[in-house]
């Protein structure tokens, strides 16, 4: 394993216990940093608006991303379309801290993900289950986030994907060693990664939860289910009082096991994002990329 890959996994370790927030302007980035974000995700439109507007969504204007890099001191991430290695090359050229190869944008390739080992900058990728997570890791992702369903304000899919991941890890830990080869076949991933999960009982990289997080309680629930941190996209800047809500979610991720504090944090947050229920969604972003 390359030294660069180790360093990139290490950066994800530094983000643990934190909240990564979607921002679309330098001003929002400053609000996010001020509220305690451990990193920001720079994108042109937050997922809820991508849903509303429709059409093809792509990597953001590098100038807009640079504006955000100048506005904050915390790490800046940005999204590229699944498979779009040229977009990733561009983000690497502007020294982005993390690339999210993301199903939130329109996929550029319906078969191949980016060969992330060809890059020096780190990648985070979405996953609905263990197989997907390990396939992204074998391609070179140094951080995973469970997909959830972005831009909905509905946490049900984030919960489903995280539970699925944890169940499959637990199953692998309890699988006999001579049955691991079959597990590798079923999950369509290299045996070495299967063996590593079997031995360590966890993903080889940091795993955050994402998609539909709207309240401190949502964040606390995902942390209790085993997430090591949380991405919040539309949930903050689509709510009534973004700064306040952001602060509350940051504290909820730190003290996720303290219901008393969570009760205080949940008070007077103003309106949460409106949200759409799972059954009402026309476009399932989580199904992009397998």
């Amino acid at each position: 394993m390359s030294l660069r890959y180790e360093l990139n996994k290490n950066l994800a370790q530094m983000l643990k216990g934190g909240v990564i927030m979607d921002v679309t302007t330098p001003e929002q980035a400053r609000i996010a940093q001020e509220a305690g974000a451990c990193a920001v995700m720079a994108l042109e439109r937050i997922p809820a608006d991508i849903r509303a507007v429709g059409g093809v969504s792509r990597m953001s204007d590098p100038k807009m991303i640079k504006g955000i890099q100048e506005a904050v001191t915390i790490p800046v991430m940005a999204k590229v379309r699944i498979g779009h290695f040229a977009e990733a090359q561009i983000l690497e050229a502007i020294e982005i801290d993390y690339i999210d190869e993301s199903e939130v944008l329109s996929p550029a390739d319906d078969t191949f993900h980016i060969d992330k080992r060809n890059f020096k900058v780190p990648f985070v990728c979405g996953a609905k289950d263990l197989g997907e997570a390990l396939r992204r890791i074998s391609e070179g992702a140094s951080m995973i986030r469970t997909k959830g369903e972005p831009g909905t304000g509905d946490v049900i899919q984030a919960v489903r994907h995280l539970r699925m991941l944890q169940q499959q890890i637990a199953r692998l830990v309890n699988t006999r060693e001579d049955e691991l080869y079959q597990a590798a076949k079923e999950l369509m991933v290299p045996y070495e990664l299967i063996y590593e999960v079997h031995k360590s009982g966890r993903l080889p990289v940091v795993n955050f939860a994402a998609g539909g997080v709207a309240t401190p309680a949502d964040a606390a629930m995902l942390m209790q289910l085993g997430a090591e941190g949380v991405f919040v996209g539309s949930g903050i800047f689509k709510s009534g009082d973004p700064a306040r809500r952001a602060r509350a979610i940051v504290q909820a991720v730190t003290n996720y096991k303290d219901p008393k504090l969570l009760a205080e944090l949940s008070e007077d947050l103003g309106e949460a994002m409106v949200g759409i229920n799972e059954q009402e969604i026309e476009l399932l972003m989580a199904q992009r990329g397998i």
């Binding site: 530094m14 983000l15 305690g36 974000a37 451990c38 990193a39 001191t73 915390i74 940051v250």
Partner: peptide
């Protein structure tokens, strides 16, 4: 970690 985050939480 991120010093801005930890520092801020120490205060809050």
């Amino acid at each position: 970690g991120e010093s801005t985050v930890i520092g801020k939480l120490l205060r809050e």
